[in-house]
Design a protein around this nucleic acid. Structure first.
Length: 303
DNA sequence: TAGACGTGGTA
DNA sequence: TTACCAAGTCT
């Protein structure tokens, strides 16, 4: 479908072969890549892993993913949980709105998709918390379909190999087209190319260090060929965390996760926070996001 | 489109 | 110690 009848150029087939050989030899043994994981949890397992991997390092996801799928092995199972249980189980993975989105996505899958994660990219995009990356990752890694999958690792490898730049520019639709041109015709080979580009960016062609001696694309890398020009770094800076509203939100939610019955007197949450206006702002925004409920003079995780 | 949104490891 | 970075998404 996404191939639109196009035949991949010989160049793409050759690069795919290099990437495939390298990937089969050097890919990390990650849980969601194991056949028994796919057999046991299917597309749901892939979907949950991709939610957790959004901006959270692999090493931190692995134990949480196992615990999560042990507790809720299917969308139907998760759909019966309360938001409080979900936010508590999410623990310290960060960006807890993802837990709520995953819970809501499970509800939609249970109600509208017969309890099975959808296969079509459009249907996946319609689920809460699923965007361009996650939708294609599920379609490709769970169902084996032929689509370009573009994450931050892939964008960095494309910037270097194809455009001769040290860092990618702002995300754009062009990224998807760049990656589409890398895909061989064969679906399984195309999935491997997607995975291999991500893996290269994660282990060889990093943001802070590179190991070009280990890279299967070194001979065709435009950045290497040009002598590693630094160019202009247009990456957006991450806002300071210390003293931020985010830090206040994190502290408030952590207190509620650890509290008995996940509830506390309202004036006990962030009681010693140095900036009272910031404290109010943080709690109000948590309520607006559905991560916290105000109940009389108490704050609690939502039921 | 730029900024908000957690948390902890690494240099 | 500070700053960067991590399989993004939403508004």
């Amino acid at each position: 479908m996404s191939s639109a009848g196009a035949t991949a150029p010989a160049e793409a087939e050759r690069t795919a072969s290099l990437l495939g050989d390298w990937y089969r030899r050097h890919a990390r043994d990650l849980p969601w890549r194991r056949p028994e994981f796919l057999e046991r949890y299917g597309a749901w397992g892939v979907l949950v892993s991709e939610f957790m991997l959004q901006q959270t390092p692999v090493s931190r996801v692995i134990p949480h993913l196992a615990a999560w799928l042990d507790r809720w092995p299917t969308p139907d199972a998760l759909a019966t949980a309360t938001p409080a249980e979900v936010v508590h189980q999410w623990a310290n993975l960060g960006y807890p709105r993802r837990a709520l989105w995953l819970h809501r996505a499970a509800g939609v899958i249970a109600a509208e998709h017969g309890g099975t994660a959808p296969r079509e990219v459009e249907a996946l995009l319609a689920l809460p918390g699923i965007g361009d990356y996650t939708a294609r990752a599920v379609a490709v890694f769970a169902y084996g379909d032929r689509h370009p999958v573009v994450d931050t690792n892939t964008r960095r490898v494309l910037a270097r190999v194809r455009h001769g730049r040290a860092q990618p520019g702002p995300p754009s639709r062009g990224d998807l087209e760049d990656m589409r041109r890398m895909l061989p015709d064969d679906r399984e080979a195309a999935a491997v190319v997607n995975a291999a580009m991500m893996e290269l960016g994660a282990t060889v062609c990093g943001a802070r260090s590179t190991d070009c001696g280990s890279c299967p694309l070194a001979d065709e890398c435009a950045w290497r060929g040009a002598g590693y020009p630094q160019g202009e770094d247009r990456r957006r800076r991450q806002a300071r965390y210390e003293g931020s509203d985010r830090q206040a939100r994190g502290a408030a939610l952590r207190a509620l996760r650890h509290a008995p019955e996940h509830r506390l007197p309202a004036d006990a949450v962030l009681a010693d926070w140095p900036d009272p206006a910031q404290r109010d702002r943080a709690i109000d925004s948590l309520i607006a996001d559905g991560l916290v409920e105000a109940d009389d003079a108490e704050l609690r995780l939502p039921h």
